[in-house]
Computed example of a mutant assay.
Amino acid sequence: MDLKDHIRRVPDFPKPGILFYDISTLLAHPDAWQETVRQLEAGVAPHKPDVLAGIESRGFLVAAPLALRLNLGFVMLRKPGKLPGPTVRHSYALEYGEDAIEMQEDAVTPGQRVVVLDDLLATGGTMRAATDLLHEQGAEVPSAACLIELSFLQGRDKMNVPVHSLMSFASGDTASLGPDAG
């Protein structure tokens, strides 16, 4: 099964010039979604994670079912102010400004093996920030994984861990996923 056949491309969303890679069509197709989770399992399980971390919000859709399948815990990595209780934050630079990612202070323990998941790797900023935050908390991050990689944006080059992607789109696709693409 070619998973790319289940990714809808939406031109000019959320604004003109952006080509949005929509995973909702993949999620809606039971056989394609089962195959996606199976392929993610094959790519992630060899890293022997103790817990999976999903990046807000589409990364939750990827990490949570895989954590369930692998009998692992799941950690949410969110935008600031979205998690209750004490949190830890990692700020990172954007092309025009700054952003941050947070997790609950007790979400991981030093030495835990954590694989980071998201739906998309674009420029690499958000995924790199996620791995940096986890490293700062003493976690070991052996890998990151995503459904879609926009290889023409070279986000993989910014990563400090190996990245496993199920699908890659090359420069023929001319724009990124949008304002929260990372």
Rank of each mutant, 00 (worst) to 15 (best):
M1N: 04
D2H: 14
D2F: 02
L3Y: 05
L3C: 03
D5E: 14
D5S: 14
H6M: 00
I7C: 08
R9N: 01
P11W: 00
P14D: 02
K15F: 05
G17E: 10
F20Y: 11
D22W: 04
D22V: 02
S24H: 13
S24K: 15
S24A: 15
L26G: 03
A28S: 15
P30H: 02
A32Y: 04
W33S: 07
W33H: 04
Q34G: 00
Q34A: 15
E35I: 00
R38I: 03
R38S: 13
R38F: 05
R38V: 06
Q39W: 00
Q39G: 01
L40G: 02
L40S: 06
E41H: 08
G43D: 11
V44P: 04
P46G: 12
K48F: 03
P49C: 09
D50N: 15
L52Y: 05
A53S: 06
A53Y: 05
G54E: 11
I55V: 15
I55R: 01
E56G: 01
V62S: 08
A63H: 09
P65V: 02
L66Y: 03
N71H: 13
F74C: 09
R78Q: 09
K79R: 14
K79L: 11
G81E: 13
G81K: 10
K82Q: 09
K82E: 12
K82S: 10
L83Y: 10
P84N: 09
P84M: 10
P86N: 13
P86K: 15
T87L: 06
Y92N: 02
A93C: 06
G97Y: 13
E98R: 15
A100V: 01
I101H: 06
Q104L: 07
E105T: 01
E105R: 14
D106T: 14
D106K: 14
A107R: 11
A107P: 01
V108G: 03
T109Y: 06
P110M: 05
G111Q: 04
G111E: 08
R113T: 01
R113W: 05
V114Q: 10
D118H: 03
D119K: 04
A122H: 09
T123V: 07
G124S: 13
G125Y: 08
R128D: 12
A130H: 10
D132V: 11
L133K: 06
E136T: 14
Q137C: 12
G138L: 12
A139C: 06
A139L: 11
E140I: 05
P142W: 09
A144H: 01
A144D: 08
A144T: 06
A144R: 00
A144V: 00
A145D: 11
C146S: 13
I148G: 01
E149C: 12
E149G: 08
S151N: 11
S151Q: 13
L153G: 08
L153V: 09
Q154N: 15
R156N: 03
R156K: 12
K158M: 13
M159W: 09
N160E: 13
H164Y: 15
S165D: 07
M167Y: 02
M167K: 10
S168D: 03
F169T: 11
F169P: 03
A170R: 14
S171L: 04
G172F: 05
D173P: 00
A175T: 00
S176I: 10
L177A: 08
G178P: 12
G178C: 07
G178I: 04
G178L: 00
G178E: 08
G178Q: 01
P179K: 02
